[in-house]
Computed example of a mutant assay.
Amino acid sequence: MNKKIVYVISMLVFAFIGFIMIPQTAKADIDGVTVTPLIGDSDITDRFQIIGKPNATRTLRISIANFGIRNVRLKIVPTNATTSMDGKIVYTDNVKSGQYGLKYAFADMTKSQTVLVKTNKTKDVSFKVKLPEGEVDNLILGGFNIYDISKSVGGNADIPVWITGSNKAVGGIVTLHNLGLDVIQKQPHIIVNLQNKEPGLMKNVIVHMTVKRKSWLDRFNLGDKTMTADLTYPKVAPNSKIPVDFDQNTTPIKAGTYVVKGAARSGKATWTFHKTYTITQDQANNINKRCKGLIYNKTTTYILIVCVLVSIIFLIFWAIWYSGRS
């Protein structure tokens, strides 16, 4: 082999080894701020990983550097991982024990902190984590959500904290949780929430879901169309909801009975769902009044008007016919 080729390959190998040995900083969308978990002597550099016995206490340290042009006041909040609509692990929700089968909440093991990091300065922050009294079954996927409290809308940084009693891998089970409504960017959304009720991280969850509003117009093929979602979630957090989003765009939410059908698959496991939900008029009105640019379908109104007119005409002709017989 040519010596030049050998030299190039060797440089690439050393460069790769050097890259994986560099401590990883957390993904940070806060202007000028980097956040780094101080792991210590470990091969894992992108998260904290705790394998501990009940009631044990661990100290976790985070380094925050501010390279921006202003001082920043950051809130560091412990929470549990949730699953986003695009199948990512996020730490932006306030998760409590009992939700989605969660036995222990990370927020109960340590306290949130607020820190001021001056420009061109670095600050280390320590957290004492008290593990629960009972055994940790499989995986608690906790983390620190870090954000600038001076901005109502802005970026954040996440520091994952994996807590396990045995470090044994476990799967999940997908079930249907509920049907919810939300307003996103001034548009109405119907969201079917599945859930992973098990303390196991899931990968590549494929979901097929349909939602249909029942109507008497269905017999004339004039009812609302069936909404369909075919999605793949690369990752699903333990004990978390799995939101399936149906964006209504400019169509307002209608009160009525909705039939939800679908299936989810992960590996060789498959789960099916079929349930009916009711959206009240108050719930629909609450969502619609917070949206903009909605276009109301007046098909039902027009049909009712036609029916009334036909009925009136029929009554007139009947009255004329009846009076003619008298």
Rank of each mutant, 00 (worst) to 15 (best):
residue 166 S to A: 09
residue 155 G to H: 08
residue 199 P to N: 12
residue 243 P to T: 07
residue 189 H to D: 05
residue 200 G to C: 09
residue 155 G to A: 12
residue 234 P to T: 07
residue 248 Q to S: 07
residue 217 L to A: 09
residue 241 K to V: 04
residue 242 I to P: 02
residue 154 G to P: 08
residue 151 K to W: 05
residue 250 T to R: 11
residue 233 Y to D: 02
residue 228 T to V: 14
residue 253 I to A: 11
residue 217 L to M: 15
residue 231 L to D: 03
residue 181 L to H: 06
residue 163 I to H: 01
residue 182 D to K: 13
residue 191 I to W: 10
residue 182 D to W: 06
residue 167 N to T: 02
residue 148 D to Q: 11
residue 164 T to V: 02
residue 164 T to H: 00
residue 178 N to Y: 04
residue 217 L to N: 05
residue 211 V to G: 03
residue 190 I to E: 09
residue 143 G to N: 05
residue 234 P to Y: 12
residue 193 N to E: 14
residue 236 V to Q: 06
residue 217 L to I: 11
residue 224 D to G: 15
residue 225 K to F: 02
residue 143 G to E: 06
residue 190 I to K: 10
residue 179 L to E: 13
residue 163 I to R: 01
residue 205 V to D: 05
residue 247 D to K: 08
residue 195 Q to W: 03
residue 234 P to N: 10
residue 237 A to L: 05
residue 245 D to A: 02
residue 225 K to N: 14
residue 161 V to W: 01
residue 223 G to R: 01
residue 245 D to M: 06
residue 249 N to G: 01
residue 225 K to D: 14
residue 176 L to R: 06
residue 209 M to A: 11
residue 170 V to I: 11
residue 168 K to N: 06
residue 161 V to Q: 00
residue 200 G to K: 04
residue 211 V to F: 04
residue 194 L to K: 12
residue 240 S to V: 07
residue 198 E to D: 15
residue 223 G to I: 03
residue 208 H to T: 12
residue 143 G to Y: 08
residue 187 Q to H: 09
residue 191 I to P: 06
residue 167 N to P: 03
residue 200 G to I: 12
residue 201 L to R: 10
residue 225 K to P: 02
residue 174 V to R: 02
residue 145 N to M: 11
residue 180 G to M: 06
residue 206 I to F: 09
residue 233 Y to F: 15
residue 204 N to S: 13
residue 173 I to G: 03
residue 184 I to C: 04
residue 148 D to Y: 09
residue 147 Y to Q: 05
residue 186 K to C: 01
residue 167 N to Q: 10
residue 222 L to Y: 11
residue 145 N to E: 08
residue 238 P to Q: 03
residue 235 K to Q: 13
residue 197 K to I: 15
residue 146 I to V: 07
residue 207 V to P: 05
residue 145 N to W: 12
residue 153 V to C: 00
residue 187 Q to Y: 01
residue 203 K to N: 15
residue 237 A to V: 10
residue 167 N to E: 10
residue 252 P to F: 03
residue 253 I to M: 14
residue 235 K to E: 14
residue 202 M to F: 08
residue 162 W to M: 11
residue 237 A to C: 07
residue 249 N to R: 13
residue 198 E to F: 14
residue 181 L to A: 10
residue 253 I to T: 11
residue 209 M to I: 04
residue 237 A to N: 07
residue 254 K to F: 12
residue 246 F to D: 09
residue 246 F to H: 08
residue 161 V to R: 00
residue 169 A to H: 01
residue 181 L to C: 12
residue 172 G to M: 02
residue 172 G to C: 03
residue 183 V to L: 07
